[in-house]
Deep mutational scan, measured.
Amino acid sequence: DTFTFTLDGIEVRLHGASEELIKTIEELLKRDIRWEELEKWIREWEK
């Protein structure tokens, strides 16, 4: 599955994202998160 969203005018596609990761990103997007914050968060998630 591919999860697609737009952040700061950039279309982002995550391939093979888990349901948990998708739900977490959706929550972060509701908080009007900035790209830099999401990028940092995703790097931490990957560890």
Rank of each mutant, 00 (worst) to 15 (best):
Trp45Pro: 01
Glu46Thr: 13
Leu14Glu: 00
Arg31Val: 07
Lys40His: 09
Trp35Glu: 01
Lys40Trp: 09
Glu44Met: 08
Phe3Thr: 01
Ile22Pro: 00
Ile22Glu: 02
Ser18Lys: 04
Val12Asp: 00
Glu20Thr: 10
Lys23Trp: 09
Thr24Gly: 15
Trp35Ala: 04
Glu26Leu: 15
Asp32Ala: 10
Glu39Thr: 09
Thr24Trp: 13
Arg31Tyr: 12
Arg31Ala: 12
Arg43Val: 09
Glu36Ser: 13
Ile42Glu: 00
Thr24Pro: 01
Thr2Gln: 05
Glu46Trp: 15
Thr4Tyr: 09
Lys47Leu: 14
Asp32Gly: 13
Asp8Met: 05
Phe3Asp: 00
Leu21Trp: 07
Val12Tyr: 15
Glu19Leu: 15
Ala17Val: 13
Phe3Arg: 01
Thr4Pro: 01
Arg34Asp: 06
Glu39Tyr: 15
Lys23Thr: 09
Thr4Gly: 05
Arg34Ile: 08
Ile25His: 00
Arg13His: 15
Phe3Trp: 10
Glu39Trp: 15
Phe3Val: 02
Ile10Lys: 08
Phe5Ser: 00
Lys30Cys: 05
Ile10Arg: 07
Lys47Ala: 13
Gly9Trp: 03
Ile10Asp: 02
Ile42Val: 06
Ile22Gly: 02
Leu29Asp: 01
Ala17Glu: 02
Ile22Asn: 01
Glu44Pro: 02
Glu39Arg: 11
Glu39Cys: 14
Gly16Thr: 05
Phe3Gly: 00
Lys40Tyr: 10
Leu29Trp: 02
Ser18Tyr: 03
His15Cys: 10
Asp1Gln: 13
Asp32Cys: 09
Glu19Arg: 11
Ile33Lys: 03
Phe5Ile: 05
Thr6Lys: 04
Ile10Glu: 06
Asp32Asn: 12
Trp45Arg: 03
Val12Gln: 01
Ile25Leu: 08
Trp45Phe: 10
Arg43Ile: 10
Asp1Trp: 08
Leu21Arg: 03
Ile25Ser: 00
Lys47Ser: 12
Leu14Trp: 05
Leu28Val: 06
Arg34Phe: 06
Lys30Tyr: 06
Arg34His: 10
Lys30Met: 10
Arg34Val: 08
Val12Met: 06
Trp45Asn: 05
Trp45Gly: 03
His15Val: 13
Asp32Pro: 08
Leu7Glu: 01
Thr6Leu: 11
Ile33Phe: 06
His15Asp: 12
Leu7Tyr: 10
Leu7Ile: 15
Ser18Asp: 09
Glu39Ser: 11
Leu7Lys: 03
Glu11Ala: 04
Arg13Tyr: 14
Ile33Met: 07
Lys40Asp: 05
Ala17Asn: 02
Leu29Glu: 00
Lys47His: 14
Glu39Lys: 12
Lys40Cys: 06
Thr24Asn: 15
Phe5His: 01
Glu46Pro: 08
Asp1Ile: 15
Ala17Met: 07
Lys47Gln: 13
Ile25Arg: 00
Glu37Pro: 02
Trp35Cys: 04
